[in-house]
Each structure stands twice: as structure tokens, then as C-alpha cells.
């Protein structure tokens, strides 16, 4: 599996879409920061307040990462080279989820450290760690949804279409007038909203568990779609 992970990393670092999406994500993520900062208590909350907004870029990265691999049939190389499908799936999922985390969590840290020259040290390390413990699994579970979509549709069009649909459903659920808090608790992307609204009324472990369940369900689902699938 290590060989596939290395190959996937090589592909990622030689791609155009990875730095392009990372930069676009950071720009979009930052674009609402000034407005958010006025509405929240600190730069961390201001940063994560908009976390769902550029989520479509992570789904777009899923399109490039999974969709094109199926469309161009390049994933067939791993299979015909004798790698187990479980290893191919896991290697691709791991690299994608870590790359997504690098972009999403990285952008939060850019905001935190980037604000120091203007605002000074307004946050303690303890505060950041305490909240990142909830945010990181939530971010990983968001990218796990992209993994599921990528392996379920196995093409660019389907992955893109389903990704947009997921984004719309998530945004609609989080803005629900009656059940917003329920969705914020059970949709991983909503955990950041709970932090911003100071509505984390359960132990952190509960939120982490919800994110882990999302990750496991998405990964198992994605693997089931890939395990016995006929490749083009």
C-alpha cells in the first residue's frame, strides 16, 4: 500500500489542481473573514464560521482526484499491477483526506498566524487545540464524503453533480429554521457552527465519535462500490 501512497503523492505534487484549489480555497475562505470577525469573539471563530462555504472546492478536488482517475482509466494501472483493491482504495482515500486536511485545516492556521501581526496573540494554544480536536475529525469526515462520491460514481460528471447536490443539501440543512441545531450536531460540517454559536453542550468525544462514524460509513460505502466493480 505504501507504494500506491507514494505514487498518489507524486501525482498530487505534480498536479496543477492541488495548488490551484489550495490557493482558491484560502482566498475564498479568507474573503468573508473581516465580516465574520465582527460577528464572532476571536479570529479562530471568525475563521471556522465560513468553513462550509468553500467546501465545494474540496468536492471539486475529489472530482480531479477520483473522477479523472476513473475517466482516464489510470486507476486500472494499480489493479492490473496486482495491487489489492482494498489497498488501492485505502491509499487513495488516505492521500485525498490528508491533502484536503492540509488545505482546510491549513487555511485555519494561516488565519490564526496571519492575524498575529495585526491582532497580537489573542488565542491560547489550549483553546485552539481544544477546538481543533473537534474540527479536524469533522474536516476529515467532510472529505470522506468526497471519497464516497468519487468511488460511487467513478466518473467526472457524476462525481461533480453529486458533490454539488451534497453541498446544497448540507447548506440547506444547516440553515434549517426548525432543526438547525440537530443538523449542526449530526452533520460533521455543522460542528464548527456549534463552536461559533457556543452551543457545544456535549463532551468533545461525542462530536468526535459522530465524525468518526461518518468517516467509517463513507469509507466502507466507497469501498463497497469499488470492491467488485468492473472497470472501464
Amino acid at each position: 500500500m505504501l507504494k500506491i501512497i507514494k505514487a498518489e503523492c507524486y501525482k498530487l505534487f505534480h498536479s496543477i489542481y492541488f495548488p490551484t484549489i489550495a490557493l482558491t480555497y484560502l482566498l475564498l475562505f479568507t474573503s468573508n473573514l473581516f465580516d465574520s470577525y465582527r460577528r464572532t469573539q476571536n479570529i479562530f471563530e471568525a475563521s471556522i464560521r465560513n468553513i462550509a462555504f468553500p467546501y465545494f472546492l474540496i468536492l471539486s478536488m475529489g472530482v480531479c482526484f477520483f473522477g479523472t482517475d476513473f475517466d482516464q482509466k489510470t486507476i486500472a494501472f494499480y489493479i492490473s499491477a496486482g495491487h489489492k483493491r482494498s489497498e488501492i482504495f485505502l491509499a487513495k482515500a488516505i492521500v485525498f483526506m490528508l491533502a484536503s486536511l492540509f488545505i482546510t485545516a491549513g487555511s485555519i492556521f494561516v488565519h490564526i498566524f496571519g492575524s498575529i501581526p495585526f491582532l497580537g496573540h489573542t488565542l491560547t494554544a489550549g483553546y485552539v487545540v481544544e477546538n481543533m480536536v473537534i474540527i479536524v475529525p469533522a474536516l476529515l469526515s467532510m472529505s470522506a464524503i468526497a471519497v464516497l462520491i468519487g468511488f460511487a460514481f467513478k466518473n467526472v460528471g457524476g462525481t461533480l453533480g453529486a458533490g454539488i447536490a451534497v453541498q446544497l443539501i448540507v447548506v440547506a440543512a444547516l440553515n434549517s429554521k426548525t432543526n438547525a441545531l440537530f443538523f449542526m450536531k449530526y452533520l460533521p460540517v455543522g460542528h464548527s457552527a456549534l463552536i461559533v454559536l457556543h452551543k457545544l453542550d456535549e463532551p468533545a468525544m461525542n462530536y468526535i465519535t459522530i465524525s468518526i462514524i461518518w468517516i467509517l460509513v463513507c469509507l466502507m460505502g466507497g469501498y463497497l462500490f469499488f470492491r467488485r466493480a468492473d472497470m472501464k
Partner: peptide, 26 residues
């Protein structure tokens, strides 16, 4: 194996395409 049209990474050079395969085949 080469099956139908070759599956290649269009944004990479020939050497880079081979390098991906070299890595994954160990």
C-alpha cells in the same frame, strides 16, 4: 498490459508518467 487506448496522465511528461508507474510497482 496495455488495454485499448493507453491510460495516461495528460498533465505530466512521458518520464513523469513512467515515474508514477515505477513508484507504484516498486
Amino acid at each position: 498490459a496495455l488495454i485499448e487506448s493507453p491510460a495516461l496522465y495528460g498533465n505530466m511528461t512521458a518520464a513523469q508518467n513512467l515515474e508514477v508507474q515505477r513508484i507504484q510497482r516498486g
